[in-house]
Amino acid sequence: MTSPVSFPSLRIVAATVALCASLAACKKPAEEPIIRSTEPLAVSTPPPAYPMELGCEDIGGTTVLKVVIGVEGKPTDIRIVQTSKTKQLDDAAVAAVRGWTFRAATRAGKPTPVSIQVPVTFAPPAVRPESCFVYDEEKKNKL
């Protein structure tokens, strides 16, 4: 013979069911996967053309540029932050960086524009190139 379920047992079962239901309601929703941000990555950064006459005259310097890399990985804005103190070198630096390509930076998995600083250094050649002697003659003939 089975015994009838007592009233206090039903209360415990009901309380347990209610507790489980409330705990289930407090369960955190499934977390979305974390998508890491990425920085721009240089893909093609050929060096700038060094103006021959400046190399022959042993003139060098560093131009620092602020470059905005757009969502397509191309520079969209280039500004001189620090000049080399030689306009031709600054112009050569800007012209070179304008043609560079990058893999765009991402935020939450989507390409986003970012700003970076790029130093472009022009170092005169350690050994004076043969072409400098032609340059010297042309310069002398202009005087």
Rank of each mutant, 00 (worst) to 15 (best):
G60R: 03
T63M: 05
T63P: 12
R79G: 12
V67R: 01
T63N: 10
V68P: 13
V67I: 06
I78R: 02
T76Y: 01
I59S: 14
V71E: 10
V67L: 06
T62N: 06
V71K: 13
G70V: 06
V64T: 15
T76K: 09
G61C: 08
L89E: 02
Q88K: 15
G60L: 06
G60K: 02
L65E: 03
D90K: 13
K87A: 09
E72C: 02
T83W: 05
V68W: 01
Q82P: 02
Q88A: 15
T62P: 11
T62Q: 12
T62R: 14
G60P: 01
T76I: 11
I80F: 05
V67Y: 03
V64C: 04
L65Y: 04
V68Y: 01
L89N: 07
I78G: 04
K87T: 10
Q82V: 09
G70Q: 06
G73S: 10
R79V: 14
G60M: 08
E72H: 13
K66G: 11
I78Y: 02
P75E: 04
V81S: 15
T62W: 08
Q82S: 14
T62F: 06
D90I: 00
L89V: 12
T63D: 10
D90C: 06
D90T: 03
G60I: 06
S84E: 02
T63W: 15
V64R: 14
G61H: 06
T76F: 01
V71M: 03
D77H: 06
V64K: 15
V64W: 10
T86I: 13
K74P: 09
D77Y: 00
T62H: 07
L65H: 05
K85S: 08
I69D: 00
Q82I: 03
Q88G: 11
K87S: 08
G61S: 06
K74G: 13
E72V: 15
T86F: 04
D90N: 13
K85Q: 10
T83L: 07
T62L: 08
G60E: 04
K74A: 14
I69A: 00
T76D: 09
G61I: 13
T63I: 11
S84F: 05
P75L: 00
Q82D: 10
L89W: 09
V67M: 08
Q88C: 07
K85R: 09
R79D: 15
T86R: 05
V68T: 15
G70A: 09
G73T: 02
I69V: 11
T62D: 05
V68H: 02
G70M: 03
V81F: 02
Q88I: 08
T63R: 11
S84V: 13
K74D: 15
I69Q: 01
P75I: 00
V67T: 10
G70K: 05
T63Q: 12
G61L: 12
I80Y: 05
